[in-house]
C-alpha cells in the first residue's frame, strides 16, 4: 500500500507544518497570557492606554470597512457590468495593494498628505490633519484592504449575470430598487465574506498604520502598535493580553468567513 503511505506522509507533513508555524505560537501566546490568571490581564487591558488603543483600532477598522464596502461594490459593478476606457487599468490598480509593501503605502501617503506636501498643506489650512492622525490611519487601512471586497464580489456578480436586473427593470423597478432588491441580495454572501475579510485585515494592519500614525500613545496607537510598544517596554503581560485579544478577534472573523463563504 504505497499509495496509503504517501497519503499518511503528506497528511503528517501538512499537520506538522501548521503545528510549528501556526498552532504552537498561538497556543503559547494564549498560555503566556493566562499564566498568571485573569486578574493581571484585566488590569493590563483596562489602562487608559489600552482602552484608547481598542477605540482607535475599532474606529479605524470601522471606517475602512465602510469605505471599502461602498467602493468595493461600486467598483465591482463597474468592472462587471460596464465597458469603459481604462477598465483594464482600474482592474490592475485594484490589486496593487496586494503587491506593495504596507510600509511603502504609509510613506506614499505621507508624501501626498504630509504637512509639507501640497495636498496635505492645503488640507492643513482647512484644519484637517491627515498624517499622524486618524484620517491618515483610515486611509492606510482602506488602501491595504482595498481589493478584498471587490475581489470577493466580482466573480459572484459575473455569475449572477444581468438578466435578473433586466427583468426587474421591465417589471417597473428603477435602478435603486433593482440594486437594493435584486443585486444586493444576489451578492449578499460574497459581500459579507468580503466585508469580514476587510475587517480582519484592517484590525490587524501594522506596517502602513505604523508609518502614518506617528505612534502617539493614547491618540493614534492601535492595538497592533500597542502590542509592539508594550513588548519593547518589557510589559509582557499587557503585550500578550492585547495580542490574545487581537488573535481572538481574528478567530471570530475567521469563523464568520467560514459561515459566510459561498457554499458552491
Amino acid at each position: 500500500m504505497p499509495k496509503n503511505l504517501i497519503r499518511y506522509a503528506l497528511r503528517a507533513l501538512a499537520v506538522g507544518y501548521l503545528l510549528f508555524l501556526l498552532v504552537l505560537p498561538v497556543v503559547l501566546i494564549g498560555w503566556r497570557t493566562f499564566a498568571n490568571g485573569l486578574g493581571p490581564i484585566f488590569e493590563a487591558l483596562s489602562t487608559p492606554q489600552a482602552i484608547s488603543a481598542f477605540q482607535v483600532t475599532l474606529v479605524v477598522a470601522f471606517w475602512a470597512v465602510v469605505a471599502n464596502t461602498v467602493f468595493g461594490v461600486g467598483a465591482a459593478i463597474l468592472l462587471v457590468r460596464h465597458a469603459f476606457p481604462g477598465k483594464r487599468v482600474l482592474n490592475a490598480l485594484i490589486d496593487l495593494p496586494m503587491a506593495v509593501s504596507p510600509v511603502v503605502v504609509g510613506l506614499a501617503l505621507i508624501l501626498v498628505y504630509g504637512k509639507f506636501a501640497a495636498v496635505g498643506g492645503w488640507l492643513e489650512t482647512l484644519g484637517v490633519q491627515v498624517i499622524f492622525s486618524v484620517p491618515g490611519m483610515v486611509m492606510a487601512a482602506v488602501f491595504i484592504s482595498l481589493p478584498l471586497v471587490v475581489r470577493a464580489v466580482v466573480p459572484v456578480l459575473e455569475e449572477l449575470g444581468d438578466e435578473q436586473e433586466q427583468a426587474a427593470r421591465t417589471l417597473g423597478a428603477g435602478w435603486w430598487q433593482t440594486f437594493r432588491r435584486i443585486t444586493i441580495p444576489g451578492i449578499r454572501w460574497a459581500l459579507g465574506y468580503g466585508i469580514v475579510l476587510c475587517l480582519a485585515r484592517a484590525l490587524g494592519e501594522y506596517g502602513a498604520v505604523a508609518v502614518v500614525s506617528g505612534r502617539l500613545v493614547e491618540q493614534t496607537q492601535t492595538l497592533t502598535l500597542f502590542v509592539e510598544e508594550r513588548f519593547q517596554n518589557f510589559d509582557e503581560t499587557a503585550a500578550f493580553a492585547a495580542a490574545t485579544s487581537l488573535a481572538l478577534l481574528s478567530v471570530i472573523t475567521l469563523l464568520l468567513t467560514k459561515i459566510l463563504r459561498p457554499k458552491d
Partner: peptide
C-alpha cells in the same frame, strides 16, 4: 412591457 427571458431570469432569493 412584460419580458420573458430564455433562461427564466428567476429572482433566486
Amino acid at each position: 412591457v412584460g419580458f420573458v427571458f430564455q433562461h427564466y431570469a428567476a429572482f433566486k432569493h
